[in-house]
């Protein structure tokens, strides 16, 4: 992929980020409820409310407020939490590694499971193993991650006693044990995603193997395995990459739920508590960060796409 195209995509990504931040800010500006009242309580005098509004800048025009919010946000100043009275940035920075670790772990599991299984299935298409995996896949796809988490807790925690249910260990205390504990939620999240991507990879390989260029490859004297690995796989990857990008974003956002199952104090925990406390600066910050992560992932997928499929990177 040439540099010009990447720069173009990059600019496009920045514009989308801008739009996302604007939508979030707009949404929180028009929802009913006065942040000042939230902060001081309903018993506050009108004078003190007005003073606070002035101090918080709520009386300034909308676009001015947006601009100053955006500028300080980019600088890392995400405001102050209403309920904890501490900088939002610090709160998030504390929790981000936990959620990030789980996301990366889960994504790695998806990758490790998907490729060998998908290729194996396609190669032995119609065989016993293939049929078994197809059925297993169909069921696994339907397991919601939080129920998968509960099942894992029951099987590995209660029955096999491999870990202590709810016994989260902070990464600052013991990193190895933390990692070990995080594997279980990661597996719970990875299972349905891996099942879906195996299904996609398998059917994509089978569809590509029917195409004319595969026939050409056979006419050159390639073995079935060579045709699969050297010709078909790269083409079959194209839709899978898109799916994996979406899956990564989904895992990241879905961590909110799985953290509840395993009692992990990550981003999900602060998001939930700040939603119920109407702690808007925190909610806004997390929303913008999560959406930005999704947009950045999409950008990376686009670039990977260009590497796999030269047709995309063509300068048209």
């Amino acid at each position: 992929m040439n540099a010009k195209k990447i720069i173009k995509k990059f600019i496009f990504m920045l514009l989308t980020l801008l739009l996302v931040s604007f939508l979030v800010f707009l949404a929180f500006a028009i929802i009913p409820g006065d942040p000042a009242v939230h902060k001081l309580g309903t018993q506050a005098t009108p004078e003190s409310l007005e003073a606070l509004r002035e101090e918080m800048g709520l009386n300034r025009p909308f676009f001015e407020r947006y601009a100053s919010w955006l500028v300080s946000f980019v600088k890392g100043d995400m405001g102050v939490s209403y309920s904890y009275n501490m900088p939002v940035g610090d709160m998030i920075l504390d929790k981000l590694p936990i959620t990030l670790t789980m996301t990366v772990l889960a994504f790695c599991f998806v990758l490790i499971i998907t490729f060998p299984t998908g290729i194996l299935c396609a190669k032995h298409n119609g065989g016993k193993l293939d049929r078994f995996i197809v059925i297993l896949n169909q069921i696994m796809m339907s397991v919601p991650s939080f129920f998968g988490g509960i099942l894992i807790t029951i099987i590995f925690g209660v029955v096999l006693k491999l870990f202590m249910p709810g016994g989260y260990i902070s990464y600052t205390k013991n990193f190895v044990k933390f990692l070990g504990y995080m594997c279980f939620p990661a597996i719970a999240v990875a299972i349905p995603k891996a099942a879906m991507s195996i299904k996609l990879l398998r059917s994509s390989i089978l569809a590509e193997a029917e195409k004319d260029y595969a026939r050409t490859a056979y006419s050159h004297g390639n073995t079935t395995g060579d045709v699969l690995i050297h010709h078909v796989l790269q083409n079959a990857m194209i839709p899978v990459v898109t799916f994996l990008g979406m899956a990564l974003a989904d895992i990241f956002a879905g961590s909110i739920i799985i953290e509840q199952v395993f009692n992990i104090p990550g981003m999900g925990r602060i998001l939930l508590s700040s939603i119920s406390n109407r702690d808007y600066p925190v909610v806004m910050a997390i929303l913008v960060l999560l959406a930005s992560a999704v947009i950045i992932i999409n950008f990376i997928v686009d670039i990977v796409y260009g590497i796999i499929d030269p047709r995309v990177s063509q300068d048209d």
């Binding site: 195409k211 004319d212 260029y213 026939r215 050409t216 490859a217 056979y218 006419s219 050159h220 004297g221 390639n222 073995t223 010709h231 790269q234 083409n235 194209i238 796999i308 499929d309 030269p310 047709r311």
Partner: peptide
């Protein structure tokens, strides 16, 4: 059969676009 394919017997098809691997 494979040892002859491509070496002694070559074949070309109707649709050159789809008959070539698009990503190579």
């Amino acid at each position: 059969l494979r040892s002859h394919q491509g070496k002694d017997i070559g074949i070309i098809f109707q649709e050159p676009m789809t008959s070539l691997n698009p990503v190579k």
